[in-house]
Computed example of a mutant assay.
Amino acid sequence: MSRWLRFLSVHSALCSLLIALPVNAVEPLKLYGTESVYRVERKGDPIGEYRLRFRPKPDGSFAVEASMQLELKVLGLFRYAFSYRAEELWQEANRLKAMTVFIDDDGDTREWRVERREDGLYRLEGDKQALRLGDQLLTTNHWHPGMPHQTSVLNTLTGDVSRLDVQSLGEEMIQVGERKLTALGYRLGGDLEDTLTWYDSTGRWLGMEFTARDGSRIRVQLQAANELAERGAL
């Protein structure tokens, strides 16, 4: 088999694994363990950390805690800090039950929550009228392997629903610790046009890249962890 045909065969197999993965079959603890840590970089320099924690519930539901802490100095003159915390509660892998979000954007704070009612998911914020968002929505915390196959998602930074027009970018190698992983890349498109995201063949999220308000590119990348290596995931 030629090298080109071998490449096409491997690429097709990886795509099939992700596309065929049943949403209800997603088991976060098997993908990530109880915690997954990501390094955040700007122009190649570390500026913070993104962290996911997974907690199973006795009734079969599970919680996902996402947090991000960023801090940087611009031209050495002033400091910018960003803090983000979110907790998602899932009845099952494709049914979000509730969510809370707190954002501190360099002193400008915002807090809102989502709750499931009979006719779908609603955003509640302060004394504003509850806003219906939809029903079966994944979130932009990115951990769910079904993310690249959505046409709309709950944007956890804005509290709105973002439209997607996902394009596959094919394979590339992603460095995780001392190892390289074969990853499938996607451009989310639509309202998140400049956001790129990567997953491995099991559906594990490896990281993303997007443009900051100052035009610089921000890279979020999975860091090696003992629990992943012990499971043979790397």
Rank of each mutant, 00 (worst) to 15 (best):
R3C: 04
W4R: 14
W4K: 15
F7W: 09
F7L: 06
F7Q: 10
S12A: 12
L18E: 08
A20R: 15
L21S: 03
V23G: 12
V23R: 10
A25H: 11
A25S: 13
A25Y: 12
V26M: 07
V26I: 07
V26E: 06
Y32E: 01
G33N: 05
G33Y: 04
E35P: 07
E35Q: 11
S36F: 11
V37A: 04
Y38K: 05
R39N: 05
E41W: 08
P46H: 13
E49I: 14
R51P: 01
L52R: 00
R55N: 13
F62E: 14
V64G: 06
A66N: 02
Q69C: 03
E71W: 10
L72Q: 09
K73N: 15
K73D: 12
L75M: 15
L75F: 01
L77R: 03
L77Y: 07
L77M: 14
F78G: 11
Y80M: 06
F82I: 12
R85F: 14
A86I: 01
L89H: 15
Q91P: 05
A93H: 05
A93Y: 06
A93D: 12
N94Y: 11
N94A: 15
K97N: 11
A98Y: 04
V101F: 01
F102C: 10
R110E: 03
V114C: 02
R116E: 11
R116L: 06
R117I: 13
E118S: 12
E118L: 04
L121E: 04
R123A: 05
G126D: 14
D127F: 14
D127I: 15
Q129Y: 14
L133N: 11
L133G: 02
D135G: 07
T140H: 08
W143C: 06
H144K: 09
H144F: 02
P145V: 03
G146S: 02
P148D: 03
S152T: 12
N155W: 00
T156I: 15
T156K: 06
L157Q: 02
L157E: 08
T158N: 00
T158S: 15
S162G: 12
L164A: 10
D165R: 11
D165G: 09
D165W: 07
V166N: 01
Q167F: 05
E172P: 00
I174P: 00
Q175D: 11
V176P: 00
V176W: 06
G177E: 10
G177Y: 10
L184H: 00
Y186P: 01
Y186M: 02
G189Q: 05
G189D: 10
G190K: 05
L192P: 00
D194M: 02
T195I: 10
Y199V: 00
Y199T: 02
Y199K: 00
T202C: 06
W205R: 03
L206S: 02
M208V: 01
F210Q: 01
A212E: 13
R213K: 09
D214R: 10
D214A: 09
R217L: 13
V220K: 01
L222Y: 03
Q223N: 04
Q223T: 08
A224N: 09
A224H: 13
A225Y: 02
A225M: 13
R231P: 02
A233L: 08
L234Q: 11
L234F: 07
L234D: 08
